[in-house]
Simulated scan of single mutants.
Amino acid sequence: MALLDGIHHVAIICSDYARSKAFYTEVLALPVIDENYRAARNSYKCDIGLPDGSQLELFSFDGAPPRPSRPEAQGLRHLAFRVSDLTAVIDALSAKGVACEPVRTDPYTQRRFTFFADPDGLPLELYEQP
């Protein structure tokens, strides 16, 4: 028996909170569940919903250092979103000015996938699972 049931949320610290919130809610069309300003931390926290019930948490923190990226660093490698029609999602993102890498096929699962980035360069994956 598995101990875990799934992912509840993934937390992201943003360099520009308003820009990242717009990206996830307007470009990716995800709904805001809750948003709070935490005065003691001078920080915003925004809970954003995904269709499967999981969430993204966006945070703002003054002076947060940039994320190490390339070459690949230890820690979270990327965040993958499951999609049923990869081509349709790529086309929708392209229409909003978001560039995706060329589509690849996973050699083990034979599923198609691609990567794009959020406003802070966080690598995001689209993984097709019809």
Rank of each mutant, 00 (worst) to 15 (best):
P119G: 07
G6W: 04
E35R: 15
S15F: 00
G53Y: 08
E72T: 15
P102Q: 08
Q110R: 13
T114I: 09
C14R: 02
Y24N: 08
K21R: 13
P102C: 09
D47P: 12
S69E: 13
E101H: 01
A73D: 09
Y44H: 15
D62Q: 10
K96R: 09
P31I: 00
E26G: 02
F23E: 02
S60R: 10
V89C: 07
F61C: 10
G6N: 07
P107N: 11
T114C: 09
R67F: 06
S43Q: 12
T109N: 01
Q55I: 11
R77F: 05
Q55K: 15
E101W: 02
P71D: 05
Q74N: 12
A11H: 04
N36G: 08
D16E: 07
P66D: 11
I7S: 14
E128H: 05
L4A: 13
S15P: 03
H78E: 02
Y108K: 11
Y44Q: 14
G6L: 02
G6R: 12
L56I: 15
Y17I: 06
C46F: 05
R19K: 13
I48H: 03
D91C: 04
F116M: 01
V103Q: 06
F59D: 00
V103F: 03
K21W: 05
F81R: 12
C100R: 06
R82S: 08
V98Y: 02
R41I: 08
L93H: 03
A73R: 14
F59I: 02
P71L: 00
L122T: 15
Q74F: 09
A88V: 02
D91Q: 08
V27D: 04
R77Q: 10
G75A: 04
K21F: 00
S20F: 02
S54G: 07
R104K: 13
I13F: 01
S69L: 14
D120A: 10
A22S: 13
E72Y: 11
Q129A: 06
D85H: 02
Y108L: 12
F81C: 01
F81Y: 11
E57Y: 15
D16W: 01
P31D: 01
F23L: 00
Q74T: 15
L86V: 06
P107Y: 08
A80Y: 07
P130N: 14
I90E: 05
